[in-house]
Design a protein around this nucleic acid. Structure first.
Lengths: 233, 233
DNA sequence: ACAAAAGTGTTTGGAGTACACCCATGA
DNA sequence: TCATGGGTGTACTCCAAACACTTTTGT
């Protein structure tokens, strides 16, 4: 089977992968190098791929994630498609596409997903030619990005903020298995762009039945150790 | 320019157009007839189109709507893409696609939009070969539908319910310019799948500053006439 | 002993919910 | 005068928000 049959070079998926380092939201980006005539050019891109001819969109997105991280059971949700003709106009992007896919590329419509992963599970297959790294969301605006990926990240962020408002469960996709209430609160506040009161927050969490206290405390902190909690069901 | 250059036969848009007839939610569907060897087959489809090579997704969706209704300034929002390889597998659908587009069609990924329109503005160009009509949402499950359009409608409904929860403004896209509180309440309850109390609902609306009372009453009703309201800003 | 973060209660205002009767109008 | 929907008020509950001090532990 030739490449022309296995790939569908008109539609791709891109994943905005979020993580949380107990302090800030992070995105997983891939370093891209484009060799031009004399010098080479560097920027960042979202993990993504052209879809295969026999897979559906969700499958393509999970494939991208497993190839990249080696992890399974990652929260993944489609949030929007981007398909303006101008998004595949930049000569650098075209050059890169045609080099990496070995296909003649016209316009590509991309279906964007957000993924949430526990940042401590760094079982990234960070080995091969792709080098993926976490970047602080606040720094993304300052970075050179491929295609319209800066846009896509912003939209993904909006989307996930919205979702987490409705489904607080999703917060726990970003926290380590055992966490303290203040880690949870920092994350909550980062996502909601608020600065919530410690006592009120404790009360709120107390009525989330899926947050259960462990008989265990934090270790190695230079002050009173906090109780650990886990997410159940 | 040949058809191959002006159309992109890999990506389409489909619009789930909602209306409200003071009683139930309705969807705008197009009658489709497929001529097979002996007899012809009838079903319904969503208004949609393959995208043109120089337009973006939002433009394609508005184009579909203006071609269909002649209206401008319609609320329109992308909500999800559908792209499984199985969605363009039914031989009837393939036949119809190739007949109407005159193009060889492989897999089509479709980007779905919801649109909200005031059902009384029936300035539909219901003339040409396309005959579009309003159908009760509850009847849709019983009807034969093209492709995965039944799915798309359900997802669109979920989406718009969600949205209207967050942005009550959107309700007014479905109501006539002048409406009564009980029309608004029926719509609200239909959308939220609730049965709200008359008095409590009046109170709620009273604090929506964008709902303003007019010095005007309903006419031609066989009982006490209700006050009319309008939506402002 | 001190620095640093953990943990804990009470009060107040606003929003949602439950609930029943009189009013205006056309037929 | 009757049938049909229009329109109105009060009491209770629950949730969100404001607000300050004591406890524990490592250095």
């Amino acid at each position: 089977m030739s490449n022309e049959n296995t790939y569908n070079p008109h539609v791709s998926v891109d994943c905005v992968v979020f993580g949380f380092d107990s302090d800030n939201l992070k995105v997983l980006l891939i370093e891209r190098t484009i060799k031009e005539q004399n010098e080479s050019y560097n920027d960042k891109k979202l993990p993504g791929s052209i879809i295969l001819n026999d897979e559906n969109l969700d499958e393509a997105a999970s494939r991208v994630l497993t190839e990249l991280t080696g992890l399974k059971n990652i929260y993944l949700s489609q949030f929007r498609s981007f398909g303006g003709p101008e998004r595949t106009k930049n000569p650098r992007d075209i050059l890169w596409l045609e080099n990496t896919t070995q296909l003649k590329i016209g316009r590509i419509v991309t279906v964007a997903y957000v993924a949430l992963i526990k940042i401590d599970r760094k079982i990234l297959s960070n080995s091969e030619e792709t080098s993926a790294n976490w970047y602080d969301l606040n720094d993304v605006t300052k970075m050179k990005m491929a295609f319209d990926h800066a846009d896509i990240i912003n939209r993904g962020l909006e989307y996930i903020r919205h979702r987490m408002d409705i489904e607080p469960h999703l917060l726990f996709e970003l926290l380590p298995r055992k966490f303290t209430i203040s880690q949870l609160r920092t994350l909550y506040d980062t996502v909601h762009q608020t600065r919530s009161d410690v006592r009120n927050f404790q009360k709120k969490v107390a009525q989330w039945s899926y947050v259960v206290a462990l008989e265990e405390l934090e270790e190695g902190v230079p002050h009173r150790a906090a109780r650990l909690y886990k997410y159940k069901k």
